[in-house]
Amino acid sequence: MSRRHSSGSNTAATILAAIADIAAVILGLWIVMYWLDANRANDLVDFVQGAAHWLAGWSHDLFTVDPDWLRVLLNYGLPAVVYLFIGHAVAGRLRRV
């Protein structure tokens, strides 16, 4: 029984870490798209912007600095780092269970 529980914990930890990674990639991708002035009329760019805005909703306008590129970096980069840190920390705890 212990072996099954450990395997389930490892699977859950892997899934959690993957979700954190995907969230961080979406946020990072939006930062790059913003910096490169991607065409916001494009469906992919619109999807990434919407997903990043939703993921960073809790930190929206946390930083109101100029220039715009720095504000985008801080307001979307901070959530990316938080998701990675918390996601991988919790995944690590799950693996030790």
Rank of each mutant, 00 (worst) to 15 (best):
L62P: 01
I31D: 00
G57V: 08
A12W: 05
L36A: 13
G92N: 13
R96H: 09
V97R: 13
W35E: 06
H5N: 10
W54K: 12
A18D: 06
A13H: 07
N39C: 05
M1I: 09
Y34Q: 08
V97K: 12
V32H: 00
M33P: 02
W69A: 09
T14S: 12
A91P: 02
L36I: 10
V25E: 00
H60Y: 14
W35D: 05
R71E: 14
L16H: 03
S6L: 10
L62W: 09
R3G: 02
L55D: 03
L74N: 08
F63K: 06
Q49D: 06
I31N: 00
L62Y: 10
A38C: 09
I31V: 13
A12E: 05
L74W: 06
I15D: 03
Y34R: 06
A56I: 04
I26H: 00
A20M: 04
S6Y: 04
A89L: 15
V65A: 09
D37S: 13
L94N: 06
G8R: 12
A41C: 00
S9D: 07
G8P: 02
S2E: 12
R71Y: 03
W69S: 09
A52P: 03
R3I: 13
R93H: 11
Y83G: 02
A24P: 01
I15P: 03
A51Q: 15
S6D: 09
A56P: 04
A41P: 00
L16E: 01
T14H: 05
G57I: 09
D21W: 04
G87S: 09
T14K: 10
D66K: 15
W35I: 11
F47H: 10
A52Q: 01
D21P: 00
Y34M: 06
F85Q: 07
V48H: 00
R93W: 14
V90P: 07
Q49I: 01
W54L: 13
W30M: 03
A91D: 01
M1H: 08
A80L: 08
R40S: 10
L84N: 06
M1V: 07
L44Q: 05
V45I: 13
W35A: 14
T11K: 08
